Amino acid sequence: MNDMTSTFFDLIRHGEPAGGHKYRGHRDDPLSELGWQQMRDAIEDGERWDHILSSPLLRCREFASELSTQLDIPVTVAEGFKEICFGDWEGKTREQVEQEYGDHQANFWRDAENHPPPNAETIQDFHQRIGEAWQHWNEELAGQKVLLVCHGGVIRMVLGHVLGLTPSNAMAGFQIPFACRSQVRLDHTEFGTLSCLVKHG
């Protein structure tokens, strides 16, 4: 155990995008002025990381780039951490989806594996995609402190992998408000890697 090294991932959801609350998924809206302020307020003075990872979408990438420049820290756009695609629900508010699709929305949040939105990425495929990205960057940045700027769905799936939850339970199990932060510690030992959720919210 004396040879143990640890990797720390700080996960932060983007702030409010332009246009307010709606299903965005792969829609590439930038942050609103409030969203920028939420993100800047979420970073404490003196915080440092070895590397910043970001979703490719503007609501994450633009802030990650700004922070990288300010702190002189390398940033990498990680395609695998893109938000889930919500299919036909993208661009609609929850109220609009409820009006158009009835109980489908409530059923999705209760059991996403069996009630996906029309033409959406399945929660199973999303879970696998995030798992593969998580494993890759765990290995690539082992021993470092990393900031991951991403999305509510991405954070849910990461925490699901860390805690051993099903995709549906992970999707329904966490509140992830704008600019919410979580931290995961990965201890690399001679017996394998042990994951721990240090804090959430």
Score class of each variant (00 low, 15 high):
52 I>G: 01
65 S>W: 12
82 K>I: 12
146 V>W: 02
168 S>C: 10
116 P>T: 01
155 I>H: 00
118 P>V: 06
180 C>A: 15
146 V>S: 04
68 S>E: 12
147 L>T: 03
51 H>I: 14
78 A>F: 05
143 G>H: 10
180 C>S: 15
83 E>R: 01
159 L>V: 07
62 E>S: 07
126 F>S: 07
58 L>Y: 09
99 Q>G: 09
119 N>L: 12
102 G>R: 07
55 S>G: 11
161 H>L: 05
152 G>W: 02
113 E>I: 13
126 F>Q: 04
131 G>I: 08
110 R>S: 11
151 H>P: 01
71 L>D: 13
65 S>C: 12
52 I>L: 13
75 V>I: 05
52 I>R: 02
63 F>C: 09
119 N>W: 03
101 Y>I: 01
104 H>A: 15
92 K>H: 11
105 Q>M: 15
161 H>S: 06
102 G>V: 01
167 P>K: 03
175 Q>H: 06
56 P>Q: 11
85 C>Q: 00
178 F>N: 05
171 M>E: 05
109 W>K: 09
83 E>S: 04
129 R>V: 06
61 R>A: 15
163 L>Y: 00
138 N>E: 13
97 V>A: 01
92 K>W: 01
180 C>W: 03
103 D>N: 11
78 A>T: 06
155 I>V: 12
124 Q>N: 13
87 G>I: 03
78 A>S: 12
97 V>E: 05
101 Y>E: 07
84 I>N: 01
178 F>R: 00
117 P>R: 09
62 E>F: 08
78 A>D: 12
95 E>P: 04
157 M>A: 15
93 T>E: 03
81 F>H: 04
126 F>T: 08
76 T>I: 09
84 I>P: 02
169 N>S: 13
55 S>C: 10
162 V>F: 02
126 F>Y: 05
116 P>W: 00
58 L>F: 11
74 P>M: 13
145 K>L: 07
89 W>S: 08
147 L>F: 09
70 Q>W: 07
131 G>A: 07
60 C>K: 04
93 T>H: 05
104 H>M: 13
103 D>M: 11
167 P>D: 02
